[in-house]
Structures are given as structure tokens and as C-alpha cells.
Write a protein that binds this DNA or RNA. Sequence first.
DNA 1: CAAGAATGTGAGCTTTTACTCACATCTGCC
DNA 2: GGCAGATGTGAGTAAAAGCTCACATTCTTG
Lengths: 213, 213
Amino acid sequence: MQPSKIRKSPRQQRSAETVEAILTATAHILVKDGFDGATTNHIAKKAGVSIGSLYQYFPNKESLVRALNDSHTKEILELMRRRFLETWEAPLEDSVRAIVRAMVEVHRVNPELHRVLVNIVPSIGGLTETKALEDAVAAMLTKFLKARKAELRPLKPELSAFMLVHAVEALTHAAVLERPELLKGELFVDEASRMILGYLLGGPEERKSRQKR
Amino acid sequence: MQPSKIRKSPRQQRSAETVEAILTATAHILVKDGFDGATTNHIAKKAGVSIGSLYQYFPNKESLVRALNDSHTKEILELMRRRFLETWEAPLEDSVRAIVRAMVEVHRVNPELHRVLVNIVPSIGGLTETKALEDAVAAMLTKFLKARKAELRPLKPELSAFMLVHAVEALTHAAVLERPELLKGELFVDEASRMILGYLLGGPEERKSRQKR
DNA sequence: CAAGAATGTGAGCTTTTACTCACATCTGCC
DNA sequence: GGCAGATGTGAGTAAAAGCTCACATTCTTG
């Protein structure tokens, strides 16, 4: 195991607040200056604590980013899980749209932090968590595809889930960062859903034999 | 302009070789150790030149990466342009497949370097080139979509190009790095093409009025 | 109200590493 | 050959920043 997590667990309220302040400051500085530009001293100052306190809880700079990534990842996973459950029984097209909306929601929580983390995490050895998140979402989608088997063209659920997770993730990421105006209305959701449904339903000949639209 | 490029242009053959060796070594070290792990001294050693020679041609560490990114970007763009031209007149489905194959080809040139650059470039200020590449490919695709207008559902070429470029880029990237086995046969090309065509052609009702499949 | 545990402080140590510079060597040219 | 410019060298410098540690303050507990 890498020297990843917390060094000392907080027992008192104030120490929990210190840890919180440090992580908040880390997020701010990271967004502003990037990983290299961010110094631990600067983070401590911004958090309003001494550099010593920072190192009492986090053994090194990487662990700060990893802690941040862990909580961000967890948050995303929980949100996706909730949204999947909510839409589990809805008509196919509605479900797909709901899932796309959930992806947008996830990326909008903290777009800048998200982008920075995506770029930093690989060089920190935090890919395990990111991969785990990806796999978890893909697993949910695989289950979803299996449940909807009757409405879809013949396909390999795992493979299709892999394709869709990566495509939609990238699309959402790009839209949030480069074309935020697409997210004002339903335009982006329309387009992404069209791509997904086109992929899942297949051409006319494959649709004929299926019952629902 | 940033202190990006070359400091001194090589006049003699040997200096050109030195520059080449430095860039090759940079690529190697970058892949092995990442941007932070890579030291200029280490790069110079691997290149078989002195640290002084390195700094005679490159003003700083970032410029090394930028030079590498520039040539990589250029290479990709030229390849894409060639492949687009080659398939300009082919039947729609064949064209789409050719374009997907071209994307795979591009990512396979040097997958590790590609991945490392993608992660480093944003923090180096090299996003301009990457964005320019993205835009150039999107522009080609836009043109392509306009030329094929008669065969497609009603769509906004720029928007569709944006969607497709990002989706396919991410898919290819993911497939090369995480599921290389998909690339052995035509499986990946099949799946990606299906997604693209599903998106461009629309549902049965939209296809009826069009002539070609 | 001790007293010890938990928490907080920040000057400064130590290491790392990008980068310089004074000098050496090579190459082309008259 | 010999000069001038191009090219190459690598020990050394200087600045940055991660991190420690000896000490101070605050909290809890009996």
C-alpha cells in the first residue's frame, strides 16, 4: 500500500475542522496553480493552519491529492448509483436521458477540480480509484443493459457498457469544459441520447423484430 | 509567445543529430518517469550529450515537452488529413470505418507517449496545439458531414462533428490503453462505426425518406 | 485543578534539480 | 595550417519546496 491516506485520525472536533480546511485549501490551490505550482506551505497558509499541522495529517503532498480524489470519486459513485436506481424502471429512452443527465450533473459538481484531478491522478498513483469508479459505473450499465435486453439489438453487455461509458464520459467532460452553452437547454442530452440509442437499438432491420420503440 | 521552441537552429549535421537524440531521450524518459520524475540531467545522459548541449537548444524543460508535442500533433494531423482524403468518395459506411481505423492508427503510433503528453500538456501551456488539432479534425469531419448531407438525417454538422470527435477519440484512447485485444480484429471498428452510424442516420423514421443506406 | 494527551506552530534543514558559464573541441573555409 | 564560428562539456550554483522537530497551546479526564 502506498503512503496514501491519513496519518493520524482526528479525535477532537477542531482537528476534524483542520483536516477539512486543509482539503478545501488543497482543492482551491490545485485548481489555481496545478499540482506543481501548488506548494504545501501555500496550502497550509490558505487553510489557515501551520505547515506542521498539515504534515501531522498528511504524510506528503501526493496524499493530499489522493484524499481529495478519493472523496470526489466516492461522491460521484454514490450519485450515479442513486440516479441509476431512480430510473431503473423507466421507459428506455427516459432512462437513457436520465443517465446522461446524471453524467452532466456529476461533471458539474466541480468541473475545474475534476479536470485537474484527471490530469494529476495518473502521475500520483491514484489510477486504482479512478479505474474502480469506471468499472463500477460500467458494471451498473452492464446490469442495466441485461435488464433491458428485450428492447435492444443483440449485443455483448460488457462490451457495450465499456463503449458507452467512455464515450459519454468524454462527451460530457468536453461539453462542460468547452461548450457549456450546450448544457443550458436539453441540446446536449438530446444529442448524447441519440448517440446512445442509435448504438443500442441498431439499424432498422434490427429494430423490426423488437417490440417497444 | 511563450519560451517554447528552439533556442539555436542547428547549422551542421551533428547538431541536428544532437537535437534529435535529445528529443528521443525525452520521449523515453517521459514515458518511464513522467514529467516530474524526468530530470534534464537524466535526459541529457540518456541522449548521450552534456547538459550544456541540451540547454543550448532548449531554454527549459517545458520546451522539450512542447517540441515533442508539436511534432506529435503535426504527425497526427497529417495522417488524419491523408486518411480523410483517401476515403472522401467511398460509400458512407466504408468511410466511417476508414475514419475509425485512422483514429486507431493514430493512437497506436506511440500510445504511451500519447498518454503522457495528454496528461502533461495542459500544465505546460501546450493546450493551444492540442485544441488546434481537435478543431482541425472537427473541421474536416464537419466538411465531410456536409458533403454527405443527402445520406444523413437532418443535423448540425459542427455540433455532430464535436460530438463524434470527442466520443471517438476517447473510445480509441480507452481501447488502446485498456482493451488492446479489441483491436486485434475488426471488433472495435465494428462497434465504433455502429455508434457513429446510429448517431448520423437516426431512427427508422428518419431513415425512410433517405435513399442510400 | 492537575496532568497527560491531543493538537498546533513555524523556523529552518535538506535535498533536489533546473540551469549557467568558463572553457574545450570540432568543422568548414581561405 | 590556422582562424572563426559552431558545437560540446560538466562541475558548480542558486533557488525552491518538501518535510522535520523541538516546543507551545488547548482540550479532556479523573
